[in-house]
């Protein structure tokens, strides 16, 4: 039985009929066509699907869409785009060479954003801890850490 829900995503309201066991990730990708959150594992192990729920980073694959009703969802598409201007983290990831295949990138930027939203000048320990729930197989994280430092220095 589908359930009618209202989702608030990147500042827009969406009325949707969803299955009760549909994950937030599935709804974002398949129904709202927001492809920034990626499926890397669908089981809470990689962080590619990370989004913000009420300002806190969450694995959207591990959350039912029905459970997201009434909460403020933000995806990478909501923090900056070529049309609206990039978020400083997005620019820093480009500048520091933190993007390789890029499949982890949107999730890691969302994790890093939560850190920079709460800590203005994070230490390297804090940066590494903030992205410890996100796997990257290409970069060894070195340039990702550099990018987050670079973005932090721009505040």
């Amino acid at each position: 039985m589908q359930k009618l829900i209202t989702l608030q995503v990147n500042g827009e309201r969406h009325e949707l009929a969803v299955e009760p066991d549909e994950s937030l990730l599935q709804v974002l990708r398949n129904r709202l066509e927001l492809v920034g959150p990626k499926k890397g594992c669908d089981s809470g192990g990689c962080g590619c699907c990370s989004v913000h729920v009420d300002g806190r980073v969450a694995y959207s694959c591990m959350m039912y869409a029905v459970g997201a009703e009434g909460r403020e969802i933000t995806t990478i598409e909501g923090i900056g785009s070529p049309a609206t201007g990039l978020h400083r983290l997005q620019q820093a990831f480009i500048d520091a060479g933190a993007v390789q295949c890029g499949y982890c990138t949107c999730g890691i930027i969302m994790a890093a954003k939560q850190l920079l939203d709460t800590v203005k000048q994070p230490s390297e320990d804090q940066i590494r801890l903030a992205i410890a729930g996100n796997l990257c197989r290409c970069t060894g994280y070195a340039k990702i850490v550099d990018a987050i430092k670079l973005a932090a220095a721009q505040t």
Binding site: L34, V35, G36, K38, I76, E77, G80, S81, P82, L86, Q90, Q91, F93, I94, D95, G97, V99, G102, Y103, T105, C106, I109
Partner: peptide, 12 residues
């Protein structure tokens, strides 16, 4: 800068 990076940081 990598030509593909802008696309990848904004949704890929």
């Amino acid at each position: 800068a990598r030509p593909d990076a802008l696309d990848k940081v904004t949704g890929g």
